[in-house]
Design a protein around this nucleic acid. Sequence first.
DNA 1: GTGGTCTAGACCACG
DNA 2: GTGGTCTAGACCACC
Lengths: 128, 128, 128, 128
Amino acid sequence: MPVLLEIDPDDPRPIYQKVADEIRSLIAGATLKPGDQLPSVRQIAGDLGVNLNTVATAYRQLEGEGLITVRHGARAVVAARRPAAAPARDLRRGLRNSLTQLVLAGWQRSAILTLVADELRELHKGGR
Amino acid sequence: MPVLLEIDPDDPRPIYQKVADEIRSLIAGATLKPGDQLPSVRQIAGDLGVNLNTVATAYRQLEGEGLITVRHGARAVVAARRPAAAPARDLRRGLRNSLTQLVLAGWQRSAILTLVADELRELHKGGR
Amino acid sequence: MPVLLEIDPDDPRPIYQKVADEIRSLIAGATLKPGDQLPSVRQIAGDLGVNLNTVATAYRQLEGEGLITVRHGARAVVAARRPAAAPARDLRRGLRNSLTQLVLAGWQRSAILTLVADELRELHKGGR
Amino acid sequence: MPVLLEIDPDDPRPIYQKVADEIRSLIAGATLKPGDQLPSVRQIAGDLGVNLNTVATAYRQLEGEGLITVRHGARAVVAARRPAAAPARDLRRGLRNSLTQLVLAGWQRSAILTLVADELRELHKGGR
DNA sequence: GTGGTCTAGACCACG
DNA sequence: GTGGTCTAGACCACC
């Protein structure tokens, strides 16, 4: 089985977040579809060389969001129903912060819109 | 002088981060222009009902990013030169995460593009 | 584990600066090499008899300079890549001030050159 | 009378220190010799566009070091005798910090020695 | 008046 | 165990 996830050690965010973000991205892009089995915690921890607890924390967060379901003794699977979305307020806040950073970095509005379209396209292709 | 900043107590991020993000956003949207004075640490701390140190930490972070300059005994001012931007990799990562959340929340691609355009417009109007 | 740092209480600079300077010096002299773990904040604070926050501030400064990397729950380590240096202008300014002080103290040019050579040698031996 | 001093607004140090450092440097390089009159506080403050108190603070510091003598109603003059030097410990500390920064910036030992010799030569020519 | 430093101690996040 | 955040309040440095 090929390695599903890769994380960037230079990315300063907590490891469990990077793992959760990767999986979330794969689900959003339909690389992982409802009913698909996720790799075991052990498998991912081994692949990435991180602590079991760290991966378990990521799974717990995804379960809390309703994106996956975990059952004792069985592999976690991607949840069937799309979960209740986070409040729109939080989503806009995250988006606004990302856009602020781009503006401060000197990106023009049109360039940003192109970038967004690119990223959305890549999401659906499972691109990285 | 009207209150410049508002922060959301339900937003779970550190207070100093929320303060820094607000100011960063105001600078990106040109509500605060190079050379403009920022409110004093005491002023903001009083308005928000938080500790002086918490606001000072936000200012220190912004100074570290080169967005503002702080001098002993004088008000902090918005820096003239735009600082070196964060590596494009980090910017894209932040953007991608925001977009992933929106997709998972069920937003359609076209709706997302509209939302992004809206947010960019609001940034430049100092909207919240 | 022997005590790594010593600071001079008669030195009027902020404690966190003295701590940061010591560590910077140890890195420059390769007593601390890329990948090496730094003592924990608690360890240093205990050794020096200062507050945890004071040491944490020093670590945060060094991290901001890119000299060390800090991750939640793990020891701080000396960064692998050398960070972008401060502008040469600032470096020369610092050097010039030091030299001015020496000249005013009556040191001869040749004595100063000898002193500089000595200090460079000691840096690389981890001397204090 | 030509403007004697120039200070760099981008230099983050306190203004009074930059003024004092400039004058110290001019004395060390013998551009200002024992018995020479210094510009009035008012003059310098006007030239630099800073507060009178700020310049007065610089003069007070130089007087405290014995480098200049100020008398009520009369111009400050450069002191005749070289003052007692700061303890060698402090001088070496300042020098070491400057050298540490250079080493961290990747300067080679030989390049540093050349730089030091250059700076000493410029000091005596009143170079900036 | 401005911002900076330090302390004490509580609590949280991470691995 | 590690480091991070926040608070309270004191005192200092600067303009």
